[in-house]
């Protein structure tokens, strides 16, 4: 009997634990990698600044976690339970003692056309054309940039779904102390101007700039070479130099897995780089190192010689980062040119 009661208590205790997920642990697991455990930012923006956390509602945080910011690095977390999302919000609330704000959903009425002009004049230098957001990632621990904190995208479906008009209006009125986002009143704008700006930002909803590219892409760029492996390698080396890239080294796919000299000589990798390009790519998103330095592989199988590279166009989707698109398009052109030169 005693044993049964004990078991019952244990079972109950376990279910209590289940009912209240550990917000700090969840934050460490899902968010800290970008925002830091203390919320000070990293690849992600700072979250623990009182000027931020005191000025956003629970609903704003919940919706942001659910939807993320498509194309702006911040992932969506559709798989977390409501209880987990609430625990995360609760955890973030621990960064401040201030009472939690709420924002009503009343639309702010303004002149979006006028707002557009004001935006170009007062906001675009940081938030980018059409509010597409600043360049780079969260804060600048490892990267030197003009702004200490990236200006978030405002034409993003995740942001627009999370933010009410009154929240946007408050952000403009009060600014965010400790960040480059200053109060628009201090900048000299009137409340009418602010209403017009809010209406303009809301108008992005009609055509949010998201990465919504349903396009299915090939995983690799590949071509057959009419030459031998050795000839193809020589051609590639010349083509790499022609594209102003530096060959770092040539080795085998099996390098490091088998004894040196015993590698399969029919699977060759040419590693190459261009430091300007590398720097640019890392400044946009430090995580892209996973695909650096650039490589092209030459393989021979059943008498067929194949030259292949990854398809850089996949990366912006992989990294949920639209800003990588341009660099990736450029890289795709370079890979194609190198391969084409080598197999012609």
């Amino acid at each position: 009997m005693k044993n049964q009661i004990l078991t019952l208590i244990l079972v109950l205790a376990a279910s209590v634990v289940n009912a209240a997920p550990d917000g700090a642990a969840l934050f460490h697991q899902h968010c800290a990698v970008c925002h830091g455990d203390d919320g000070k930012g990293g690849v992600g923006v700072p979250l623990s600044l009182t000027s931020f956390i005191n000025s956003v509602s629970d609903e704003y945080l919940r919706t942001t976690i659910r939807l993320g910011r498509p194309g702006r690095i911040m992932p969506a977390f559709p798989a977390l339970s409501d209880a987990q999302v609430n625990a995360l919000v609760e955890h973030m609330r621990g960064w401040s003692d201030a009472p939690t704000v709420t924002h009503n959903t009343e639309p702010v009425k303004g002149d979006a056309k006028r707002g557009e002009q004001l935006f170009a004049k007062y906001c675009e230098q940081c938030h980018g054309e059409n509010g597409k957001g600043g360049t780079g990632t969260g804060v600048t621990f490892s990267r030197k940039r003009e702004l200490p904190i990236i200006a978030p995208a405002l034409n993003n479906s995740g942001f627009l779904a999370a933010a009410t008009d009154t929240m946007i209006k408050d952000t403009l009125i009060y600014g965010r102390e400790g960040t480059p986002m200053t109060s628009s009143l201090v900048t000299g704008l009137s409340e009418t101007d602010i209403d017009d700006l809010v209406s303009y930002i809301r108008s992005f909803e009609a055509q949010p700039h998201d990465s919504a590219e349903d396009e299915v892409m090939p995983a690799v760029i590949v071509a057959e070479s009419p030459y031998t492996v050795e000839e193809t390698i020589e051609n590639l080396k010349a083509a790499i130099t022609d594209q102003n890239f530096t060959l770092i080294r040539t080795d085998y796919v099996e390098h490091g897995f088998v004894e040196e000299g015993k590698e399969n000589k029919k699977q060759v990798v040419l590693h190459f780089c261009n430091f300007n390009f590398l720097f640019q790519a890392l400044a946009i998103d430090p995580r892209v190192g996973v695909f650096l330095p650039c490589r092209v592989t030459v393989t021979e199988q059943d008498g067929k010689v194949q030259v292949a590279t990854i398809n850089p166009m996949l990366l912006s989707g992989l990294f949920n980062n639209d800003e990588l698109k341009e660099a990736c398009r450029e890289m795709t052109g370079i890979y194609e040119a190198i391969i084409e030169d080598a197999v012609l």
Partner: peptide, 8 residues
């Protein structure tokens, strides 16, 4: 890899 229109 396909970025889905529905963010959920």
């Amino acid at each position: 890899l396909s970025v889905v229109a529905n963010p959920f």
